[in-house]
């Protein structure tokens, strides 16, 4: 399952109003570590599709979202719960490390 793109137009409906926790992966095409972490997030999404939604925001195309959430380093992964950021992860990490960071949502 490949994470779908969310934009400034769809962010509210798909992220802020979501019933399930949503992990938003802030990324860009020119960011090498983003390319490395994206298949890992896809795997985590597939294995936990009942517990967490994983979507992507392209910071080049959605600069206002990047600014609003004070992104200064990517990949930045933020989990939104009931419209609020509940966990922030910065930087690409191996799958077991990401799973540990996200343990609260995956169990």
């Amino acid at each position: 399952m490949t994470a779908r793109d969310v934009t400034e137009q769809t962010f509210e409906a798909e992220v802020l109003k979501s019933e399930k926790p949503v992990l938003v992966d802030f990324w860009a095409a020119w960011c090498g570590p983003c390319r490395m972490v994206s298949p890992i997030l896809d795997e985590i999404a597939t294995e936990n599709s009942d517990k967490i939604d994983i979507v992507k925001v392209n910071v080049d195309e959605n600069p206002n979202l990047a600014m609003q959430y004070q992104i200064t380093s990517i990949p930045a992964m933020k989990v939104f719960k009931a419209g609020e950021v509940s966990t922030s992860i910065v930087g690409a990490k191996p799958k077991p490390a990401l799973e540990a960071d996200l343990a609260a949502y995956l169990s």
Partner: peptide, 17 residues
């Protein structure tokens, strides 16, 4: 402050400045 303005990778993060 790492990821909040402190960075080790200009090509990754320069865009945000």
């Amino acid at each position: 402050l790492s990821g909040r303005g402190v960075s080790w990778c200009a090509t990754c993060d320069g865009f945000f400045f």
